[in-house]
């Protein structure tokens, strides 16, 4: 983004119509297209609804942030596995995919402040599973903080490309339990008629969910941070969290 604006700036300077440039850059209607990359397979954060559209908590948050920051946004789906590489190589400008802020990722990309608070990660298993299953075979999605945690916890990690496959692995007995965000797992438990339960242990991982950006896009990061501030102050972010996560308190 910085580069694209930079580019225009210079061309306009070359044309020596800096007055007009100032007018354009300061005009409130000025909007550059920002492409938002999401996975589309992590309900209720983001998913593809029955109309084939991207839907969920992050769809609403993202649209609202773009409106506040006066950005013209479009949505792009991308596999979780390649979501960071494709941001870095410029396929889209923002990751908005329930991605927890971690030091490891922060070395490669930049994050905005969190728009979803740190959530305990939960172990979900079939009813009747003992708590020591967390040391058995545990499923997690590839390249997630949970996968990293399980690998170091001494349990046997089985990784899957999509969140849905981790659930399937527990249901068909391939894994003893799955470790994932509370917000993602809760619906599976409440709708399972007792078939699926949470185990007692929980793990605190990550610093909440933030937007991922290229490190060079500082200007865009500032704009989005400001917009998140606005949503936190006016309470609209808490409202959306409550709406999508069964009345959960955002606490912002």
């Amino acid at each position: 983004m910085r580069v694209s604006i930079f580019c225009k700036e210079i061309r306009l300077k070359n044309l020596t119509i800096s007055l007009m440039a100032a007018a354009v850059l300061s005009a409130p209607a000025f909007a550059d297209t920002v492409r938002l990359g999401t996975e589309g397979a992590y309900a209720p954060f983001n998913f593809v609804n029955d109309n084939g559209e991207i839907d969920g908590f992050e769809r609403e948050v993202g649209d609202k942030l773009c409106e506040l920051a006066e950005l013209d946004c479009s949505w792009v789906k991308n596999d979780w596995d390649s979501i960071i590489p494709n941001l870095v190589s410029g396929n889209y400008d923002v990751i908005i995919a329930g991605m927890s802020i971690t030091d490891e990722r922060d070395e490669v990309i930049d994050f905005t402040q969190d728009y979803y608070p740190p959530d305990p990660s939960m172990y979900m298993a079939l009813a009747g599973t003992k708590d020591d299953a967390i040391n058995g075979i545990v499923a997690a999605q590839t390249s997630t903080i949970q996968a990293g945690y399980v690998a170091e916890s001494g349990a046997t990690l089985v990784e899957f490309a999509t969140p849905d496959e981790t659930i399937a692995a527990v249901k068909n007995g391939e894994a003893d339990a799955v470790l994932a965000d509370d917000g993602f797992l809760r619906k599976y438990v409440t709708e399972s008629n007792g078939e699926l339960v949470f185990l007692t242990p929980t793990v605190s991982l990550g610093g909440g969910v933030g937007l991922g950006l290229r490190e060079s896009d500082t200007e865009l990061r500032d704009k989005l941070n400001a917009a998140i501030d606005t949503m936190k102050k006016d309470g609209s972010l808490n409202e959306l969290i409550a709406k999508w996560f069964d009345g959960k308190k955002g606490g912002y």
């Binding site: 580069v3 694209s4 930079f6 580019c7 225009k8 210079i10 061309r11 070359n14 550059d32 297209t33 920002v34 492409r35 013209d72 479009s74 870095v88 190589s89 410029g90 490669v108 290229r214 490190e215 060079s216």
Partner: peptide
């Protein structure tokens, strides 16, 4: 041609928005 910044910056690949294929919008 006026952009002198490197295209490969660290792990990032950054071209000006006019050069995007397809264009951003």
């Amino acid at each position: 041609p006026q952009v002198t910044d490197a295209v490969y910056r660290g792990n990032e690949f950054i071209v000006c928005s006019e050069a995007k294929m397809p264009l951003q919008d």
